[in-house]
């Protein structure tokens, strides 16, 4: 399974991270997981990431800040946000900044698959 798109997953919660990873892998994608945005930025996977699934609230850099940074760098990676605090203000903000989706925890796996496929199609 070395080929195919890489899906990067950032979540500070290990169980969520692990579960998202399992779900992505079950769909046949390669997944990389990170406990924080900082870890992701330093991983060298930015450019080979076909889709980024990230939590919004995290210690250190938040998901929103990560999107701002990536956009500033010109890295146009599709981002799916998953959050336990679905605030309309943030939803509007990230969608305007180009995010593919803004999912509330817990999410239907079909919803994630839909967004994931949409993201990969964009790519």
């Amino acid at each position: 399974m070395g080929e195919g798109p890489v899906i990067s997953i950032i979540d500070d919660d290990p169980s969520v991270r692990k579960a998202t990873d399992g779900l992505v892998r079950s769909l046949g994608y390669r997944a990389e997981t990170f406990a924080s945005a900082e870890d992701f930025l330093q991983s060298g996977h930015i450019d080979d990431t076909s889709c980024l699934i990230t939590d919004v609230q995290m210690p250190g850099l938040s998901g929103v800040e990560l999107q701002t940074m990536l956009n500033a760098r010109g890295t146009r990676v599709p981002i799916i946000f998953i959050t336990a605090f679905p605030e309309d203000r943030i939803r509007r903000c990230v969608l305007e900044a180009g995010a593919i989706g803004f999912l509330s925890k817990p999410f239907e796996e079909s919803l994630l698959i839909e967004h994931l496929e949409a993201a990969l199609a964009v790519r």
Binding site: S15, A19, G22, S26, I82, A84, P106, E109, L112
Partner: peptide, 25 residues
């Protein structure tokens, strides 16, 4: 309440995702 909701949501999210993955597998 937000924190509590979040705390409960985390495992729920994981459960949901794991269940989805299991179904796919």
């Amino acid at each position: 309440s937000a924190s509590i909701a979040h705390e409960v949501n985390q495992p729920l999210t994981a459960i949901m995702a794991q269940a989805g993955a299991a179904l796919v597998f």
